[in-house]
Computed example of a mutant assay.
Amino acid sequence: MGKTNEVDGVDIPPELRNAIINQEGVWGLFINNSENSMSVIFSILRKELNLSLAEIASIRKKVPGVILTGTQIEMERLRGILSSTNMPVSVLKLEDKTC
Rank of each mutant, 00 (worst) to 15 (best):
A19Y: 07
S34D: 15
S34Q: 14
L92W: 13
V26A: 11
V66C: 10
G28I: 00
I59G: 03
M38K: 14
S39Q: 11
L92S: 05
M75S: 06
E24P: 04
I21P: 06
S52R: 07
S37F: 07
R17V: 11
M1Q: 05
D11E: 12
E35P: 03
W27V: 01
L78A: 02
N32M: 06
N50G: 06
S37Y: 11
P14Q: 14
F30D: 05
G70D: 03
I31H: 13
G80H: 12
Q23F: 15
N5P: 01
I67A: 11
R77Q: 12
V89H: 00
V7Q: 08
P64W: 02
F42M: 10
I12S: 00
G28Q: 04
L53N: 10
L16K: 10
I73P: 01
K93R: 14
G9Q: 05
E76W: 04
N32C: 09
L51A: 00
K62Y: 04
G9I: 09
S58D: 07
S34M: 12
E6R: 11
W27T: 00
N86E: 14
L45Q: 03
E76R: 15
G65M: 03
P13D: 15
I81W: 01
I31C: 10
E35Q: 12
R77E: 11
R46V: 00
L78M: 12
L68C: 09
R79D: 08
K97P: 15
E24R: 15
S58L: 09
I12H: 01
L53W: 06
W27S: 00
N22V: 05
I73M: 12
S84C: 15
I81P: 06
A57N: 10
S39Y: 14
A54W: 01
K62D: 02
N33M: 11
E6D: 08
M75L: 13
I81S: 01
G80R: 11
I44F: 01
F30W: 14
K97D: 12
S34E: 11
A57R: 12
I56F: 08
K3M: 01
I67C: 06
T85H: 04
F42L: 07
S43P: 02
R77K: 10
N36V: 11
N86H: 14
L45Y: 02
F42G: 07
S52M: 00
I12A: 00
N18Y: 06
D8S: 08
S37V: 05
N36H: 09
D8W: 10
V91C: 02
L45A: 05
L51I: 02
T4A: 00
E24D: 13
K93L: 04
S90G: 11
K97C: 13
I31S: 13
P88W: 01
L53Q: 07
P64T: 03
Q23G: 04
